[in-house]
Design a protein around this nucleic acid. Structure first.
Lengths: 339, 339
DNA sequence: ATTGGGTATGCAAGCGCTTACATTGTCCAT
DNA sequence: ATGGACAATGTAAGCGCTTGCATACCCAAT
């Protein structure tokens, strides 16, 4: 056979109609045991795989969920997506992942590609995107869930945590340790609401502590080790120098620690450093990293459950945000009392 | 409008036939300017997106490439896949990624899902899988490329490097530093030819140096930090204790270093540790990690070019394996000469 | 034996798109 | 004027599958 077998080939081989074969595959209990056995044998003899395009076109459901994550370059989204996939799989859905490299235009293309491909639902990260994208999604009636963020006022249902409150919690701990000159390395905030919220969280804490929120020494850098190193170097060049640098993410914190070592600055003696995410590497860095633990797996699972419910037409009442937790490790130290 | 517009809706709105609309979209120069403008206006007025299933079914090409990677949990495959995607994108293809969690059965399901979805080509990692899988792929006539591995005798074309030679190169350096009692932490080798090859590479070097290859203290652990920590602890419990532990991967090396610190073993004074991959974290660990640099991006790009060529029916002569490079950093030290 | 009520199966109409082929229209050479 | 060549567009036949409806069949009850 030079071309892939079709339903009809199977039907012929089993001596039944295409309808029966289709039913065997999709609603096995509507076909009597004996026939089904014969059909299944033909299926495996011919090594038949249904043609997806045809199936979609006829049935209008794909049992496929699409997800677009900003990056696969580091593990930020990996754990959550893995859990998301596992849960989807258990529910009979297949996950297709694309990565946008933090580029809104690319993301938009990928959204269209996934929708065109018949994704029954979409998972996107964060809520910063052009209104036209949400219009398009609404128009195409594709249930969409936003993860890694939380908000009742978001343009779609969300499954995530409150980035602002989470970072504020960490900043409060930092301030509680006596730090007053705060530095921060954040991802570019233009199209990244999570990053923006984290910055806002730090400022919230500063304001609440009676500090000038604008005094935050803020530097932007992409989520990679080298950029963060450079950013850290810049921060350390300022005077007075910050006593602590809060990083928007553990990867950046790793870069900061790395750079500190290069500059012969002891962490935390000369400068404290914190991260965000509590990735695998956080406890392994030296010094081990103070960070914010994000419930990645729980978020992925919840996202899967919610999105499937949306796809299957159930009403979902909005979820509360997931809780995050400050993890204290050696990279943050208390400042000696000055007053 | 309650349902997505179809080609026919557009045709009606523009006052032309569906064929003309289709041509506007797929071969614009076969339609005269004036008509095309009218059609395009209708398209954007209606916010029309072609139905992928229908298009696939009629045209039999999807411009989609599928990739299945063993894990997204850590960044092992991330850089390569990212480059793969970028190159595909430049060539007008969309990449769909699935993760098999190192489970052959899951991988098989995902292969079928991707094929059924009309992937024009497939990228798989390594070559260890049931013959029936390759039969299926041949049957379905889906061009398939194996990455992260190299071999003229592989069941499909490959785009990668020689794991065995790469690890042998590192082991030779290690032996050259005077180490004689070697420990190794490898991923489970049952369905992972890359891991198996790396072990073989170490044994090759040992044998070539006149050592007993069976004297290698080998422990298996999945690619995560905690498992590697445990594995390292086991290795250190043996006596005589290895003077160096070669890890199948940088993540495992991170776990090993972490565990060494916990056990108050100084690296590299008490024990040397090496990794594989030269991930971002390798230079950031303390001590910085001696490892093998793998040309991830080059591999991803080559894979994309080769696979697209295969999909488009060009003949490809087999490529040479990509070169790897031993990166010496502080985690490996020379042993004092004993003789 | 008949009849009625289920069940198991077959029939055939699409699903939205592409594309080979047919048709219509245009323009130029004769 | 007329025919021919070519360009622009339309017509309609699938692509492989699902599913509402029709048919065939089986068994129990009469």
């Amino acid at each position: 056979m030079t071309t892939a077998p079709t339903l009809e080939d199977v039907a012929r081989a089993a001596g039944v109609s295409t309808a029966t074969v289709s039913r065997c595959l999709n609603m096995p209990d509507r076909v009597v045991e004996k026939t089904r056995a014969r059909v299944m044998k033909a299926v495996s003899d011919l090594n038949y795989t249904p043609n997806f395009g045809a199936r979609v076109m006829a049935a209008k459901r794909t049992q496929t969920i699409g997800a677009i994550i900003p990056t696969m370059e580091n593990a930020i989204f990996a754990r959550g997506i893995q859990a998301f996939q596992e849960t989807l799989h258990a529910k009979g859905y297949t996950l297709l992942v694309a990565s946008s490299a933090y580029d809104p235009a690319l993301e938009e293309q990928e959204i269209k590609a996934l929708v065109a491909r018949g994704a029954d639902g979409l998972l996107l990260i964060g809520q910063d995107r052009d209104g036209s994208v949400y219009d398009y999604l609404a128009r195409q009636q594709v249930p969409t869930l936003l993860a890694w963020t939380h908000g009742a006022d978001a343009p779609c249902p969300t499954a995530g945590f409150d980035n602002r409150a989470a970072m504020r919690g960490l900043a409060e701990v930092v301030l509680g340790k006596g730090h007053r000159r705060l530095g921060m390395i954040s991802a570019p905030t233009a199209t990244n609401d999570r990053a923006r919220q984290r910055v806002a969280g730090v400022r919230d804490a500063m304001a609440a502590a009676g500090l000038d929120a604008n005094a935050l020494a803020l530097v932007h850098a992409p989520y990679d080790i080298d950029s963060a190193s450079t950013a850290f170097e810049g921060l350390m060049g300022q005077s007075p120098r910050p006593t602590v640098v809060l990083c928007g993410n553990d990867v950046q914190a790793a870069g900061a620690i790395h750079q500190a070592r290069k500059m012969s600055l002891a962490v935390p003696e000369d400068v404290s450093i914190t991260g965000f995410d509590d990735m695998d590497i956080a406890p392994v860095l030296s010094p081990p990293l103070t960070t914010v633990a994000v419930p990645h797996r729980a978020m992925g699972q919840r996202a899967a459950r919610t999105l499937v419910a949306m796809v299957e037409g159930e009403d979902m009442q909005p979820d509360a945000p997931l809780a995050t937790q400050v993890i204290l490790r050696a990279s943050l130290k208390a400042l000696p009392q000055a007053d």
